[in-house]
C-alpha cells in the first residue's frame, strides 16, 4: 500500500482528499448531530443531485451545479420552515425528492450518451483530481474560519437558540451560516462517499466521539480523526479488493459505530 501510495498520483490525491474531507465532515457532522439536523443534511445532499443533472445539461462542472442547488435548498428549506406553517418534515421530503427528480430529468434531456452518475451517488474517491483537492481545501478553510472565529457564539446558538436571541446574538445569521456550511460540506463529500451515503459519514464519527468526551471541541477533533481513519481504511480496502470506495468507507464507519456502541458504556 505504501509503495503504491508513493508511486501513484491518484492514490495520493485520494489520501489527501480523505484527510481534507474529514476536517469539514468532523466539524459539520458534530454540529448536525448536536443540532438534530441530520435529516436536513440528507435532504440537502439529495437536492444537490438536481444540480449535478443541471451541470451536465449546461455543460458545466456538475459539482458547481451541486453547490448551487445545495446552498439554494439549504436556505430555501430554512426560510420555508421559519416563515410558513408547513411542517418542516414535509418541506424536507419535498426538496429531497424534487432534487432527485430534477437531476434525472436534466440527465435524460441532455443529448448524447448518459453520463455515469454512479460516482456521484456512491462516491469514487480514487478519481479525485487536483482541482477537486483545491476545492476541498478552500471549503475547509471557509468552514474552519467561520466556526473558529465565532466558536463561542456558535456553541451558545447550538445549545439554546432562545437565550442566544435574548442576549442579542445574530441568531438568524448564525442559522443561515450553519446551513450554508452544511451545503458546502455536502458538496465536498459527494466526491468521497456520494450523495446516497453522505449521512452516515457525517453522523458516525461524532456519534462515536460523543461516547468518549463531554466537550464540544473534543467531539469535533475526535470526529475529524475518526473520519480520517475510516476514509483511509476504506480507501485501502477498496484498492486492495477492488471494491467501490464509497461503500467500503461507509461499511467501515457504520460497523465501527455499532461495534463501539455495543461495547462501550456511555461517558460519565
Amino acid at each position: 500500500m505504501f509503495e503504491a501510495l508513493l508511486s501513484y498520483n491518484f492514490l495520493q490525491n485520494a489520501f489527501f482528499s480523505a484527510i481534507l474531507a474529514s476536517i469539514a465532515c468532523g466539524i459539520i457532522g458534530t454540529i448536525i448531530v448536536e443540532k438534530k439536523l441530520i435529516m436536513m443534511s440528507g435532504g440537502i445532499a439529495h437536492t444537490a443531485f438536481g444540480g449535478i443533472g443541471l451541470g451536465y445539461y449546461l455543460g458545466i462542472e456538475p459539482l458547481i451545479g451541486a453547490m448551487g442547488f445545495a446552498i439554494f435548498s439549504a436556505l430555501g428549506i430554512s426560510q420555508l420552515q421559519n416563515r410558513t406553517r408547513i411542517s418542516p418534515e414535509v418541506v424536507l421530503g419535498m426538496f429531497w425528492a424534487l432534487g432527485m427528480a430534477l437531476g434525472i430529468l436534466f440527465i435524460a434531456v441532455t443529448p448524447g450518451y448518459p453520463p455515469d452518475i454512479t460516482s456521484y451517488l456512491f462516491g469514487d474517491i480514487l478519481t479525485v483530481s487536483r482541482v477537486d483537492l483545491l476545492i476541498t481545501l478552500i471549503m475547509d478553510l471557509i468552514i474552519v474560519a467561520a466556526i473558529g472565529c465565532f466558536f463561542n457564539a456558535f456553541k451558545t446558538y447550538l445549545f439554546d437558540e432562545e437565550f442566544a436571541q435574548v442576549i442579542g446574538l445574530p441568531v438568524s445569521r448564525l442559522e443561515n451560516l450553519t446551513y450554508v456550511l452544511i451545503a458546502l460540506t455536502v458538496v465536498v463529500l459527494i466526491r468521497v462517499v456520494g450523495i446516497m451515503l453522505i449521512i452516515a459519514l457525517l453522523t458516525a464519527p461524532p456519534s462515536i466521539a460523543r461516547q468518549y468526551t463531554n466537550s464540544f471541541l473534543n467531539t469535533i477533533l475526535l470526529s475529524i480523526l475518526l473520519g480520517i481513519i475510516f476514509c483511509s481504511a476504506g480507501l485501502w480496502v477498496s484498492y486492495l479488493l477492488d471494491i467501490p470506495s464509497g461503500a467500503a468507507i461507509i461499511i467501515i464507519a457504520v460497523s465501527s459505530y455499532f461495534l463501539i456502541s455495543m461495547f462501550k458504556k456511555p461517558a460519565p
Binding site: F159, E161, E162, F163, T213
Partner: peptide, 16 residues
C-alpha cells in the same frame, strides 16, 4: 427550549 443533550457542563452553560 434548550438542547439538553448538548455537551455543556454547568459552568459552560452559565458562562454563556
Amino acid at each position: 427550549n434548550l438542547n439538553r443533550e448538548f455537551p455543556f457542563s454547568v459552568l459552560e452553560t452559565i458562562l454563556t
